[in-house]
Nucleic acid binder design. Structure first.
Length: 596
RNA sequence: GCCCCCGUAGCUCAGGGGAUAGAGCAGCGGUUUCCUAAACCGUAGGUCGCAAGUUCAAGUCUUGCCGGGGGCGCCA
């Protein structure tokens, strides 16, 4: 029943905690199989769960297999559980004790020695602890942010930047080869409006045009006259009102004087605005420690003929038709609720067509997994893209959507109104200046992506660091270095992993820490699989909450003591906690300071 | 009208069908000879929006309703 290598393994051999659970899992599977065979039941075994119970009294692991099995064995659950328990036995020395509990759970306690080997395996693995190879080096693309270069990044983009980056990081540590990609949406109407907005401000600054009055700019539905007091109004309806537009216009005026008056908004103005804004976006992302491997230009899809090709291929499959002077995607034929326009009656594609072409390119570029991180405002779009590329022969199941809801700001309990149109919003730059990159990232990634995020600026700015969760975790890490510094001062060397006798750690809080450390690889695996990095943030808070009090109570269990063996064991714990905190902070893209 | 998200402690939120539902902040009461008091301990606080259903077992899954947010264009 047990894998032979387990029995043969030399004591102290690398025995990863994840494998400890796997072994127990296999032992239970075998026992379940035996019980079913005895009952002449040939159906597949039930998918039971073996997990870490909330209550420590319920053991190191608890299994619900007997509850699922009871009916098929025609036995009361607790009786089935008892049979299962004895069939599993000690699982080859892995299990010290097991009991039937509650309605029919089997609770397992691992043999102490096995449990303590965990610490050595953490120290040996170091930065590799928690890593795995479930991705097998497969190529995955994570596309995120993808904001149009029409203005500074908003908090929604900031959240997405951190979220996407953390998803990429957690995939990297689980064996995927990740490409971070930003879809640079540089075609289309929005960019023309941007150019026109800059040109209008340019003309206004030269006294060649009048600015629309503020009350009209404030009203999205307002129409405005062509002239005011004999002066033409150049500013486009729905134009970009941010102060940065005027700044770009002013720099063009300084450089070119009035020689651009006859230039179209779409030319120099648009180009200058796009470049300047993109530089700023790039700088913001850099300040957030977010770096992209690829900036993919929408315009390149036109230049390489991919747009036309996609349209042609859709037409060949009878998935588009002409109506009202436009070209429609026959989405209803793909099971969706309505058809949608892919080429407007003006001859210009809508955003949908390039998006389909782009996703098709993702497959052509060899990604086996494609993750789109998108704001809730784009959610409607996704099913159409997915259905269309599926119809074109791509594996649409390989495309995933990670949706993130918007960010609201509160400052001292008061909500702060954000309005892009009126340019009365707080930018990522401003907020990062205020709270710092680490805090910003932590707050943005701490919440589940598909829920609204209430960013509490007061808490984020909190310099009373015991209240600020980001600092609380970093401080826990810094403390491990504090102890190391103290040890060095006292001439105490850090122990080698093999020289540590972890069985000296017997206090309840020490065992609680070891158990928490053991969970780390599971947390990472789960965060990666579900694309939910917030689990890592919560885990780190939990771990810090165990660690800070432990260090604090320097009377009950001082790390540095007169007992060299105990000191070595506790220094081992210090290093193990540090390793896991540092690895987890790394997955979230936060720094792990040695001193605060 | 249709679609998506949310509804869990005073507030902000975790919770992978399992046992007595958790954390942070804010309360209240304490702790300083200490590896950082930038800390810690204790305490209080809940009909998990409501109602049915599935299940041995529902905060978790299904349906309906109520409440909040967002989206529903030949805009992106």
């Amino acid at each position: 029943m047990q894998p032979p290598e387990f029995l043969d393994a030399p004591r102290g051999a690398s025995d990863s905690p994840a494998r400890m659970r796997d072994r127990l899992q296999r032992a239970i599977e075998a026992a379940v199989g035996a019980l079913l065979a005895e009952a002449a039941d040939t159906s597949p075994p039930p998918p039971f769960v073996l997990d870490v119970p909330r209550q420590a009294e319920h053991g190191d692991f608890a299994c619900n297999a007997a509850l699922l099995l009871a009916k098929r064995l025609r036995q009361p659950p607790r009786e089935a559980a008892e049979r299962l328990r004895s069939a599993v036995g000690d699982a080859g020395g892995l299990v010290a004790r097991s009991v039937v509990a509650g309605p029919g759970f089997v609770n397992f306690w691992l043999a102490g020695e096995r449990w303590h080997e965990l610490m050595r395996s953490i120290l040996r693995a170091g930065a590799g602890f928690g890593r795995s190879d479930v991705g097998h080096g497969a190529r995955v693309q994570v596309e995120f942010v993808s904001a149009n270069p029409t203005g500074p990044l908003t908090l929604g983009h900031g959240r997405q930047a951190v979220l996407g980056d953390c998803i990429a990081r957690v995939l990297e540590v689980t064996g995927w080869q990740v490409t971070r990609e930003y879809y640079f949406n540089d075609g289309g109407r929005q960019m023309r409006v941007l150019g026109d907005s800059v040109k209008a401000r340019y003309l206004e600054q030269l006294g060649r045009a009048a600015a629309p009055p503020a009350h009209l700019l404030a009203d999205p539905d307002a129409d405005w006259p062509t002239h005011i007091g004999g002066m033409p109004i150049a500013f486009p309806k729905g134009g970009y009102q941010g102060h940065y537009i005027s700044e770009i216009a002013a720099s063009l005026r300084e450089r070119y004087g009035d020689s651009l008056i006859e230039e179209p908004g779409e030319g120099v103005f648009r180009q200058a605005a796009q470049e300047r804004i993109f530089e700023e976006i790039h700088a913001t992302l850099t300040a957030l420690r977010v770096r992209f491997d690829v900036y993919y230009n929408e315009t390149s899809l036109y230049e390489t003929g991919r747009i036309e090709e996609t349209l042609k291929d859709l037409r060949a499959k009878d998935l588009v038709y002409d109506a009202d002077g436009a070209v429609w995607l026959r989405a209803t034929a793909l099971g969706l609720e309505r058809d949608r326009v892919v080429v407007k009656s003006t001859g210009e594609p809508t955003y949908l067509l390039p998006d389909i072409a782009y996703h098709r390119e993702k497959f052509r570029r060899g990604f086996s997994r494609i993750i789109d991180v998108q704001g809730a405002d784009h959610i409607e779009q996704f099913p159409f893209v997915r259905a269309a590329i599926g119809a074109l022969g791509c594996d649409s199941n390989a495309v995933e959507l990670v949706m993130n809801q918007f960010v609201t700001l509160t400052r001292g309990g008061e909500s702060v109104k954000q309005s892009t149109r009126r340019a009365t919003y707080i930018t990522v730059d401003e907020l990062v200046d205020e709270v710092g990159c680490d805090v910003f990232r932590f707050f943005m990634v701490e919440r589940k992506a598909d829920g609204h995020l209430d960013f509490d600026v007061e808490l984020a700015k909190e310099k009373d660091w015991k209240k600020n969760p980001a600092y609380y975790i970093q401080y826990a890490h810094a403390r491990t270095h504090g102890i190391e510094r103290k040890a060095r001062e006292g001439g105490i060397a850090l122990p080698e992993p093999d020289a540590i006798d972890a069985t000296r750690l017997v206090l309840e809080e020490e065992l609680a820490l070891l158990k928490k450390l053991r969970e780390y690889p599971d947390v990472i695996a789960r965060a990666a699989e579900s694309r939910e990095p917030h689990h890592v943030a919560y885990y780190l808070r939990d771990l810090a909450r165990l660690w800070n009090p432990y260090v604090q109570d320097g009377v009950r269990h001082r790390v540095l003591s007169d007992d060299p063996g105990l000191t070595a064991a506790r220094l081992g714990l210090v290093l193990a906690v540090r390793t896991v905190l540092a690895n987890g902070l790394g997955v979230l893209g936060l720094s792990a300071p040695e001193q605060m």
